[in-house]
Amino acid sequence: MPGEKNRLLRVTEGLVALIQGFWTTFIHLFRKPITEEYPEYKRPLPPRSRARIILTRDPDFEERCVACYLCSASCPVSCISMQSAERADGRRYAAWFRINFSRCIYCGLCEEACPTLAIQLTPDFETCQYDLLTLVAEKEDLLVDHGGKNQEYNYYRYAGVLVDGDKGGHIQEARPVNLKSNLP
């Protein structure tokens, strides 16, 4: 009967597979382990690895963060909090900015949500502390003096809101409408 033959075949195949499996694991015994021993050897991580979070600066060396609250809104563990404030020139900035790294799960959603490329994740993952409170990072701990992954982008050149100077000075903007002119 073909059925019987099939069953026999299946049993044989099964047995062969079983032996193959055991053989495979067995020869693994004699292979060199691929483990990299961490504190002695530190593996270079790709730049897009997601670990410690930084706040970057734009090419004008201004803080990029405008405290728009989008990162805190997107954070699934609510570990980001901040307070926005207005600078004398009308530029919006974070009066304080706090990330609780004891809660952070390094998912990177904040980086994705950030419209100004301010908040960025870095490959630096060695942040363990014995005291939880020392894992609460403030703005001064987070702020770096470079642009991170994108050095060129400057949000305020596209924003279309006045920071200083006249309106219409941003990229792809026309001169302000002259209200008093009645010319065609």
């Binding site: 596209y158 792809q172 001169r175």
Partner: peptide
């Protein structure tokens, strides 16, 4: 073309954003 209307800009320098 009079510039009381919003002036137009050539495409080269602009990318959709």
């Amino acid at each position: 073309f009079r510039d009381s209307l919003i002036p137009m800009e050539k495409t080269e320098s602009t990318a959709p954003e």
